[in-house]
């Protein structure tokens, strides 16, 4: 898995009534994927298990989104995010991901549970330009902490303009 697939313009689309289910441990290492996941990602179950979830990360995704994602999960809260994923053959597929922390019977976090659904096309039309702008800001700032900051600030500005929280914003798209 050391060589990343070369992204292509080919899009894979989730069926309306399906969802991708995956589980990871606290470090993001995949511990389970359902058949839809295996099928759409193009990897076999064997290839996915034990790998970090970011093998599916598409270069079009701003890093600030993943930072927000991890910050929220570490605060033991659920997160919704529109994510563009990269399949093994270089094609991409958009999902509307819901990730929740899982706990054992004593309430200790043991991993993350992710359900990814087919997003509405209008939502993708709205989010893709925002991600492009954020990614641009990250690249301009040299991908360091500064980039993350600038990128997060763009998202924050959009939310402030609309007067909504991030959660309301993504659910409302």
């Amino acid at each position: 898995m050391s060589t990343r697939p070369q992204p292509t313009q080919h899009e894979r689309v989730l069926a309306e009534d399906d969802f991708i289910v995956s589980k990871t441990d606290l470090k993001g290492i995949i511990t389970y994927g359902n058949r839809i996941f295996i099928q759409i990602s193009g990897y076999t179950e064997q290839e996915l298990l034990g790998e970090p979830h970011n093998i599916l990360r598409h270069p079009d995704m701003p890093r600030a989104v993943f930072k927000l994602l991890w910050d929220t999960l570490q605060a033991k809260r659920e997160i919704w995010a529109y994510v563009k994923n990269l399949a093994k053959d270089g094609s991409f597929y958009w999902v509307f991901a819901n990730i929740t922390p899982s706990f054992d019977s004593s309430g200790n976090p043991i991993g993350y549970y992710s359900v990814r659904r087919k997003p509405r096309p209008e939502a993708i039309q709205a989010i893709a330009p925002l991600y492009r702008t954020m990614l641009e800001a990250e690249r301009k700032a040299g991908d360091g902490q500064a980039g993350m900051k600038a990128s997060s600030a763009i998202l924050q500005q959009v939310l402030e303009q609309k007067g909504v929280t991030y959660e309301e914003f993504v659910i409302g798209l």
Binding site: D18, F19, N98, T100, R117
Partner: peptide, 27 residues
């Protein structure tokens, strides 16, 4: 698991007065 996770989140939000977070039945 998806069913219960959704129900839990939706009720959790509703209890805090956040009515925008409904349980998602897609899938």
């Amino acid at each position: 698991e998806a069913y219960f996770s959704e129900v839990f989140s939706a009720f959790d939000h509703a209890a805090r007065g956040q009515t925008f977070r409904l349980a998602v039945d897609q899938g």
